[in-house]
Design a protein around this nucleic acid. Structure first.
Lengths: 224, 224
DNA sequence: CCTCTTGCTGTACGATCGTTCAACAAGGAC
DNA sequence: GTCCTTGTTGAACGATCGTACAGCAAGAGG
């Protein structure tokens, strides 16, 4: 009776598991407290470990933050890719799945968006964040560009390519510029919703994006 | 010769002047060092004053930061309004002036954009920033909405309003949604250019925005 | 020239920051 | 049961944070 179970004061974890737990704690702290949540003590408390453990698994704080940014980035992109893959082969259905995935939880979460904004604020002055951005953003750009390409009837454009090339060298729709504009629209709507969630519904954001795309397709078809 | 001019160790300034100098120094520090530049010592060094002076003119640091946000906001909006007013009365010319003002210095400055991003990161957890945002953002929204309204031939829509109302109650173009989408496009392009200035030229951003507007006008005209 | 207001300085304080490191102990190997 | 590896702890360090405040001095008013 008096003999209590000799409960361990802590449990060992494989480095990989602990690293991930610390990354999750970092993101959680960012959600709760914003930039002020990015302190060793806040994060370690959130993870339920001591202050010293972070520097055992990460060389310093900045590396942990960069790892958190890399994780949140690749998680998001993986979710998008999965949603698109689930939608089948129709370009329209794939794009719709992408948009609905974008403008719904967990992507369109006010907390998650606030996390992104803090990272953006760090971007310019942290080489580590810049590297993490470059490494993960590429997957996002190529996913989006691929969907745009398959949505626009460029195969027709390719067949009549010789004629159009001869006329000026420009394709019917500048895919690069279209991707830039579309990304801007997505990010901008995201940001607006983050700063003031009440002003519009997610479905309206989808609507706006599809209107943009429809206009793009129409323009592309008209010229080819 | 040995008599040196008894140069004053500091110069007194009217509170208004000094407050503005401190606000300018705050913004300059944000440009140079990002979020880490938001410290009393960094700001006071930038302003060339002692650490104690800030708390003489502002109750605390957060109030100074909020004042800086308010200032940068109203400066931007005032610049836009001036550019639009200078453009005359033609809706097209006014909108073009607005876009060109938006996508050129000093608005489209990588430093200035970085400042904004830091403020956005603070937004969610600072009531003072939220208040400053609400107080200044309204002017921007109304400017933009006014330009959209005068750009769309809504007077024709108003004349034939009875017919369209009877058909479904929705105007040809939802002005609210159009403003939201347009703002998103502006902010998104701004953000993209900030994060990676090399990917597109400002003129291309203007082009994208005008394409969006042209499609909006066309859609509005087709239905009325 | 003197006085008085007040803008301004700069030290001091306690809190918290990121990081270090010696000691501890969990738990698998044997 | 006994090593032994190593994940983990937590006190301690120096630096820096925001703020307070007692005193200095600039410069206008008389």
């Amino acid at each position: 009776m008096a003999r209590t179970e000799p409960k361990p004061r802590f449990a060992r974890q494989p480095p990989e598991v602990r690293r991930q737990a610390l990354i999750d704690a970092t993101i959680e702290c960012l959600k709760r407290y914003g930039h002020e949540g990015l302190s060793i003590r806040t994060i370690s408390a959130q993870a339920g470990v001591s202050v010293g453990l972070i520097n055992h698994h990460f060389p310093n704080k900045d590396e942990l933050v960069a790892a958190a940014y890399r994780h949140i980035n690749s998680e998001l992109i993986a979710g998008m890719q999965a949603a698109v893959a689930r939608a089948g082969s129709s370009p329209q259905a794939r794009m719709r799945a992408f948009l609905e995935s974008w403008f719904s939880a967990p992507s369109l979460d006010a907390d998650a968006l606030a996390v992104w904004v803090v990272f953006w604020g760090l971007y310019r002055h942290s080489r580590l964040i810049q590297r993490a951005h470059r490494e993960t953003y590429q997957g996002y750009v190529s996913l989006l560009r691929g969907m745009l390409a398959e949505l626009l009837p460029s195969e027709r454009a390719a067949r009549s390519g010789r004629t159009r090339r001869a006329r000026g060298g420009a394709p019917a729709v500048d895919l690069r510029l279209a991707a830039i504009g579309f990304t801007a629209l997505l990010d901008g709507l995201w940001l607006e919703w983050c700063l003031e969630p009440g002003t519009f519904r997610p479905a309206e954001a989808v609507e706006l994006c599809e209107a943009w795309l429809a206009q793009l397709v129409r323009r592309n078809g008209a010229r080819s």
